[in-house]
């Protein structure tokens, strides 16, 4: 039973990390109908810049802030240079963002060097709590808390505030919103920047939990995020959370009991979802998958 709970906590923590990347992806896709294949690259940039600022300034929170600012800046650049010329053309969007992904990954190697970099865990989150036989690693508990807070904030902002209303209406009818006096272009840039910052924050939080970061992790976790978005339903924030937790838990349990299946199990979940419910577990209205 203790083992079960321990594994479950690890799985939830992993799921929360995946949720952070996937939520940015699904936000950008669900609200703006742009599929950003460079998203994993932003995640890797977040991890590197987070570690860089943490080591430089010797403050974990400033490291996270540095990662968020990096994410915002890169998101702004991506929207301006890469995505804006190809709005509305899905195939060219996929191609161009993938090209940008290559550039981002290689630029990481140019700026920070091609070697694996160690990522330290902040002192306040080192060690673990023991409750009976259950070990809770402090850093994992921290990740779960951050993930839950971000989920609640994102969900309520989109659901109840005017911003969420404007963005959702803007996707349905861009011209109408523009005519009503809203600068929808600016709103789209902001959405893109926030989505990118979420990926970067996910990267910065991921770095200490894995202990080492490398340039190719962007692509690896990018694939995870895509799978989660497919399972959860494109554009749905609760769907992403549920799917991310499902994938995280399935991964941790199979990694313990049947290590050989740990990667394949994610694919199997995705295949089952694609066969029986191709629109994903949740699917917000207005986003079609056909």
């Amino acid at each position: 039973m203790e083992l079960f709970i321990n594994l479950a906590i690890n799985g939830i923590a992993m799921g929360m990390l995946i949720f952070l990347i996937a939520s940015g992806l699904t936000l950008i896709f669900g609200l703006m109908s742009v599929l950003n294949f460079a998203h994993g690259g932003l995640f890797a940039w977040g991890a590197y810049s987070g570690v860089f600022f943490y080591v430089l300034l010797d403050n974990f929170w400033l490291g996270l802030l540095g990662a968020i600012v990096t994410g915002l800046l890169l998101g702004w650049l991506t929207e301006l240079l890469i995505v804006r010329p190809v709005y509305g053309n899905h195939i060219r969007q996929i191609l161009i963002t993938l090209g940008f992904m290559l550039v981002l990954t290689e630029m990481l190697k140019v700026v920070f060097g091609p070697n694996i970099i160690n990522a330290p865990t902040p002192e306040m989150f080192q060690g673990s709590w023991m409750i009976g036989d259950i070990t809770i690693i402090k850093y994992r508990a921290f990740i779960i808390a951050v993930g839950l807070i971000l989920f609640i904030v994102m969900y309520s902002v989109l659901k109840y505030s005017k911003i969420g209303l404007i963005v959702r209406a803007g996707v349905m009818n861009k011209d109408m919103i523009q005519a009503l006096g809203v600068n929808i272009k600016l709103v789209f840039v902001l959405v893109f920047m926030v989505g990118s910052a979420l990926a970067a924050l996910g990267g910065a939080l991921f770095a200490p939990s894995s202990g080492a970061i490398y340039a190719e992790m962007g692509l690896e976790f990018g694939i995870f995020a895509f799978i989660v978005v497919i399972i959860g339903g494109m554009g749905s924030i609760p769907g992403s959370l549920l799917a991310a937790l499902l994938v995280g838990l399935a991964n941790t349990f199979t990694a313990y009991y049947m290590p050989i299946l740990s990667m394949v199990v994610t694919m199997i979940i995705m295949l089952i979802v694609l066969i029986f419910r191709p629109q994903g577990l949740f699917n917000i209205s207005g986003v079609s998958n056909k």
Partner: peptide, 12 residues
């Protein structure tokens, strides 16, 4: 499905 799905499924 939409082109994204094929791209993502083949990637995975």
């Amino acid at each position: 499905l939409k082109s994204h799905y094929y791209a993502m499924l083949t990637l995975a």
